[in-house]
Computed example of a mutant assay.
Amino acid sequence: MSKVLVINAGSSSIKYQLIEMPYEIKISSGLIEKINERGTNLTLHYNGNKICIEKPLSNHQEAFHFLIEMLIKNNIIGDLNDIAACGHRIAHGGEFFKNSVEITKDNFEEIKKIEYLAPLHNPANLQGYIEMKQLLNNAIQVAVFDTSFHQSMSKEVYTYPIPFKLYEKYGLRKYGFHGTSYRNVVNRVREMVGKEKQSRIIACHLGNGASIAAIKNGKSINTSMGLTPLGGLMMGTRSGDLDPSIVEFIAHKECLSVEDVLKQLNKESGILGVSQISNDIRDVRKAAMDGDNLSKLALEMYAQRIASFIGSYYVQLGGLDTLVFTAGVGENDYRMRESIIDKVKDALQIELDDEVNCSVMATDAIISSKSSKVMVLVVVADEEIVIARDCYDILKSKL
């Protein structure tokens, strides 16, 4: 057996899971948030226990050292040698990385070269590797890319209608994200409903960040996010697709820089921007039920845009076998699932089992009726187990 530590390092946070492979036993999970802020918090889950600690941590190096210290102190691991592999979620792999890889000196340099494609994500992700490499001398370090699943898209799908020399010079194209989540969906559909229902899948990863993928025979043929996670669906704080000239218009009228406008589109738009209340659908739904019209509009816009992508991908797939909802909103908000299905059910001949749909929250389930032409599933997002499997496969290949 081998313990795999899965790391998702953000600019001010670190999420982790410790998983025993190959049995896929989740030993511990947790989160360090507000790094380099007052009141840095560590939440640690293990063996049915939950520990919350507030401790000033001024940088990622201190945070990772503290995490390992707490894993040892609470007997979650005996020592550093207990961890055989460390898997790092890397947001962007560009065109170079089509699969997960062990991070070598050469691979590290290649990832560094494409930092400009994800300046808000990749540097923080790589910081996790740098720190864990120093702490865990005997563990292999593995990079698992959000973009790699979508490398199967065809050229006419991923190419933008801009001067082609910009693609050749900078790699400006659609890449897509949430790839590890979609890989989990493909595996779970196979396990839940069998191979006959996995040929044509539309998967909706609906969280604060949201995207949709069209998956044919286990391969991505299209996805809603583009060069960056800003494209595609309306999200918690992101605008999703809009007329590009809006950027110049806002910059001119509001006397803002392009960077300031992009900040608005990334952090102040979407459900938050329309509702003017929150990026959390639970808060917005409560306000809508209390009669707030902008909250009602935000929810309706969100569902409508998702339904539009489902319709487009239905055509591209040449039909549909299984529609999947995953991630926070997809797993937990039965009203949103119902609202989306209502907009496509006649065209796609989908019939929900209303009783089952209303009862499903954060669990894998089939929520369509037996007479539905398309199966509708809820799948709990589990990107960490996908990362752990990739780590274990690479670890085995080295033995």
Score class of each variant (00 low, 15 high):
V4K: 08
N36L: 08
N59S: 13
N122T: 07
K370G: 12
M289T: 06
N138F: 10
I32T: 11
A307F: 04
L227D: 04
L57D: 02
A203E: 03
Y182C: 01
I340Y: 02
Q134V: 06
E62D: 13
G311V: 07
I77S: 06
K105F: 09
N41T: 15
M289D: 13
M336L: 15
K219W: 05
H60P: 04
E300H: 14
I35E: 07
A381N: 10
N266T: 10
G207M: 05
H45E: 14
M234R: 07
V189W: 00
R389V: 10
S369H: 02
I72Y: 05
N217I: 14
A118I: 04
E248H: 15
S371D: 11
Y334F: 15
I130H: 11
G330H: 09
H92K: 07
V261G: 04
Y314I: 05
P56F: 13
L120I: 12
V284S: 03
A365D: 09
S181M: 01
R282D: 04
K345L: 00
L31F: 10
V386L: 03
I246Q: 06
P163T: 03
K195R: 09
N36A: 15
E109I: 13
I90L: 10
K197H: 15
D146W: 07
I277W: 01
S397R: 12
I103M: 04
I35G: 05
I83F: 02
L233D: 04
K165S: 12
H205V: 00
G10V: 09
V4E: 11
S28I: 03
S224W: 00
P161R: 03
S372H: 01
L242H: 08
V356L: 09
S28D: 00
E259G: 10
V380W: 03
S278V: 05
V360E: 02
V356K: 15
M1P: 04
S339G: 03
G328E: 07
A84Q: 13
K50W: 06
L166W: 15
F145H: 09
E383P: 01
R389S: 11
H60R: 11
P163C: 05
S278R: 08
L67P: 03
E156T: 13
P229K: 01
P56A: 08
G318E: 08
S257Y: 07
K73F: 06
K169Y: 04
I130D: 11
I68A: 10
I306C: 06
A381F: 01
V144T: 06
I76L: 05
E196G: 12
L377A: 02
L317E: 01
T180E: 06
E69S: 14
E351N: 09
I77G: 09
I19T: 07
L67I: 10
V274P: 03
I310P: 00
R200G: 08
A303R: 11
G270T: 12
Y23E: 13
V360I: 14
K216Q: 13
K55S: 11
Y160D: 03
N293C: 13
I76S: 02
F64H: 09
L42S: 09
L352C: 08
P22C: 00
G171N: 04
T159Y: 12
I27N: 03
V360C: 06
E37H: 14
K73N: 11
A84G: 15
D333Y: 10
E115C: 15
R335A: 12
P161L: 00
N107V: 08
G93L: 01
I271K: 11
N47K: 12
L136S: 07
A288W: 00
I221F: 10
E168K: 14
S220K: 08
E109R: 14
Y116T: 00
R282P: 02
